[in-house]
Design a protein around this nucleic acid. Structure first.
Lengths: 203, 203
DNA sequence: GTGGATGTATAGTATTTACTATATATTTTT
DNA sequence: AAAAATATATAGTAAATACTATACATCCAC
């Protein structure tokens, strides 16, 4: 089992340094999308960002830490959006249209994030980053389950939780698919997915 | 764009060599599961398989080719199983129970395949292997769509195709999830997924 | 504006990586 | 059983990789 330090080394304090860290993250994301995690190297990131290795290594111990940070950022954006939507849900109940909007939001967030899909896929495929995913998944499942418990859908907590888990999995994969294939009929895909989710919670 | 040769170099002719190739593939799959594609190296595969580099390089030009072959094998197993199931479907129509059986079959195939999930995830996350996935996906979508067209579900071909695409995406992600989490209520997950698929094709 | 803290560059090293020329062993053909 | 074809091992190399000691530059507090 190869474990890697995933924490930052130093937090940047000056604005110049903040720019550097941002540049490292953005450049890494772009490169990740182009060449994949395997061929991503700290040296390549430095070259592409027009930085030198010590500037990078001041903040990140290795490339795993960089991608881990990207993953955490993206997960946070996505989970926050879902959490907001589930607050509304508590008030006005289930609603396919809102689910459609939430899913579209997830697509937009992933699309706007540099190298979004690549970050997601790398997080899934890299054992050393598995913790990031599991933690985020669990958080989201907990949040959604407890929101939905208030709606009295007629399921016991474990059963509801299981369905939520499935629903999240489906949502994630559809979002990835849509972002990855700009040619497809996105609106219809999202509409169907929302209906599927509704079906899962009411059947 | 870094492209890599993915073809075999030599096909093994002697039984000894066939064993070697099998050993390389199995060992690579196991290692892939443990350490991920990034840290997988030909040298490590050789060491773990108790072979020497020239023995490996006689058959495979690099590790991409090895994982590509694993991916193709797994895709073939999965697609064949679905194709068989869709032959039955042509005769007796849609049927949730059969879908349950097909999904269980997919889970079993993935579980039996050494490093199954790791192979899938690597194939998704590695740009150099994207072709394998796209080709397999397309094949499966074509097959299923044409089988379902015979059933007269009331959709035009493009609309049906789109739904099939979604259905496959959902199926894949659920299979991965179930295989990866042996603790979960697999039967219920598969049952729900089958119902979702049925819903998608009849709503 | 000087001193201490923070940030980046120069220049490089030890290690790991993919990959091979050559030699030897084993299997199949004749 | 000798020759030809196939398979594996010995031993290694060139290139790439992660990572750093040191030196210089910039920023901020006083």
């Amino acid at each position: 089992m190869t474990s890697k330090r995933l924490e930052r080394r130093t937090t940047p304090l000056q604005t110049r340094a903040n720019k550097t860290v941002g540049l490292i993250l953005e450049t890494a994301a772009k490169l990740l999308e182009e060449i994949g995690f395997e061929e991503l190297t700290t040296n390549k990131i430095c070259k592409a960002a027009e930085l030198t290795p010590p500037a990078l290594y001041r903040y990140f111990p290795n490339k795993y830490a960089i991608v881990s940070e990207l993953a955490k950022q993206l997960m946070h954006l996505q989970n926050t959006a879902v959490a907001e939507s589930s607050v509304d849900m508590k008030h006005d109940g289930l609603n396919v249209d809102r689910t459609v909007r939430t899913l579209s939001g997830q697509v937009q967030i992933t699309r706007d994030f540099p190298g979004g899909v690549a970050v997601l896929k790398t997080m899934y495929a890299t054992p050393q980053l598995v913790e990031v995913r599991l933690k985020s998944h669990e958080e989201l499942t907990d949040g959604l389950t407890s929101s939905l418990m208030n709606l009295d859908l007629g399921f016991a907590e474990p059963e509801l939780r299981r369905r939520v888990r499935l629903l999240i999995e489906i949502g994630n994969s559809v979002v990835e698919m849509v972002v990855e294939n700009p040619g497809m009929d996105e609106a219809a895909m999202i509409q169907d997915t929302a209906e599927v989710m509704h079906f899962l919670l009411t059947k």
